[in-house]
């Protein structure tokens, strides 16, 4: 049984958004990706506080980069999911799947192709 902390629901969503965005994952794009895919409003504060928590756990790393004129020169912070984060994310999703198995009221959704 792995002892690693399983990421929570919103943490999983944020990590998936960071993974999907690849090299372009910073606060605003992560928020936009989540809002577009979940059709839910998300505050930038919630995104950054979750990313900070994930970084403390070692699930993501961040790197500051200089900002351009479109942001009045303010820095950007790019995030990347670590190998430990990928393992934790897979574990979390697998645990959910195992919990859902055999529960008739919550069937597994059809795979999107």
């Amino acid at each position: 049984m792995p002892r690693q902390d399983l990421p929570g629901g919103f943490e999983q969503i944020v990590m998936l958004a960071v993974t999907r965005l690849g090299d372009n994952a910073y606060g605003m794009t992560v928020r936009a990706e989540i809002e577009q895919r979940t059709a839910r409003k998300v505050s930038l504060g919630a995104v950054y506080s979750t990313l900070d928590r994930l970084e403390t756990k070692g699930y993501v790393t961040s790197k500051q980069a200089a900002g351009g004129g479109e942001r009045e020169g303010r820095a950007k912070r790019f995030f990347r999911v670590t190998a430990q984060g990928v393992r934790a994310l897979n574990e979390g999703i697998a645990a959910l799947d195992r919990m859902r198995e055999g529960v008739a009221a919550i069937p597994r959704p059809a795979r999107v192709t």
């Binding site: 910073y26 606060g27 605003m28 928020r31 930038l44 504060g45 950054y48 900070d52 500051q64 900002g67 479109e70 942001r71 009045e72 303010r74 820095a75 950007k76 912070r77």
Partner: peptide, 11 residues
């Protein structure tokens, strides 16, 4: 995160 959040909202 001061610069990052402010920059995101300006952008």
């Amino acid at each position: 995160y001061r610069d990052e959040i402010a920059g995101d909202l300006i952008e």
